[in-house]
């Protein structure tokens, strides 16, 4: 069975200055799957995500080569980079509440895209905050500052913001490091629901999280894909590569 490809990556290379950190990787992401990405620190997970939505452009010393296609469109040739970024929701590892009201935090992206009707914005704000498991906590103080929330709340606000422009692809970069386990579980449940209409890329340091949520998992190590396969293989006792087994079982040295 060949499932439709949502993201195609061909021989992607990325260097910061002269230091190459992604060494020509090739893989596909299927539509409406959850792809887990695991790998030790510095392996290039965050950098990979930044190549997808082209925020890598904001790092002047970064050189990208190879092909990244989203929906069949080559991202480095796209005419509408802002549209591309709206297609991809990005949740950075560190919580960032913007210094504007909670409401504006979530309404910011739709407004940037040209939406202005209050009723539409209200609906989006409520929906996204609910999906990020934050609505109940902030519904009475939507006008207070996003920066005045606690770290975990800000992280969920970041998730709400990433959902606010109704992306087709949601990239989560270690989203749970600032969130307590209970809330993490609630968000994981939301992710499972989102899978019906969204492709999710889940970068995580918790291999168990990838195991719980992902359909397939990619093991990235020092800028190379060691193994990319269904969870049944990656988390079995006999993945194709010995290093995958060792990493997943925490005996990586």
């Amino acid at each position: 069975m060949t499932r439709p490809k949502h993201v195609e990556v061909r021989d992607l290379r990325l260097a910061y200055g002269t230091k190459e950190v992604i060494h020509g990787i090739t893989f596909d992401i299927h539509r409406h799957e959850i792809l887990g990405v695991i790998g030790p620190a510095q392996s290039g997970k965050t950098s990979l995500l930044r190549c997808l939505n082209r925020t890598i452009d904001f790092t002047p010393e970064a050189h990208v080569s190879g092909i990244v296609k989203v929906d069949g469109e080559e991202v480095r040739r796209t005419r509408d980079v802002y549209g591309l970024r709206r297609k991809i929701g990005m949740v950075a590892p560190l919580p960032v509440g913007l210094p504007i009201s909670i409401y504006d935090n979530v309404a910011f992206a739709p407004r940037c895209a040209g939406m202005s009707r209050k009723a539409d914005l209200d609906a989006i704000v409520e929906q996204c905050l609910r999906q990020a498991a934050l609505w109940e906590e902030v519904k009475d103080r939507l006008s207070s500052l996003g920066t005045k929330l606690s770290g975990g709340q800000q992280q969920r606000l970041t998730i709400a913001r990433a959902l606010s422009h109704q992306p087709e692809i949601l990239c989560l970069d270690e989203f749970s490091i600032a969130i307590d386990p209970v809330t993490t579980m609630r968000i994981e449940d939301v992710l499972k629901e989102l899978r019906s209409h969204m492709t999710v890329i889940l970068v995580t340091n918790l291999t168990q999280q990838a195991r719980r949520l992902a359909d397939r998992t990619m093991f990235l190590w020092n800028g190379d894909i060691i193994e990319l396969d269904s969870n049944a293989v990656i988390f079995s006792d006999t993945p194709k590569d010995r290093r995958t087994h060792d990493y997943v079982n925490g005996i990586f040295g």
Binding site: N53, T55, F58, Y82, G83, L84, R85, R86, G89, M90, A92, L94, V96, L98, P99, I100, D104, F108, A109, C112, A113, T158, R161, A162, S164, H165
Partner: peptide
Amino acid sequence: SFREACWNVGATRWQTIRA
């Protein structure tokens, strides 16, 4: 990080600067 958060949701530089 504020600027990056804005860029991530598809804001232009000017929209980021203004907001």
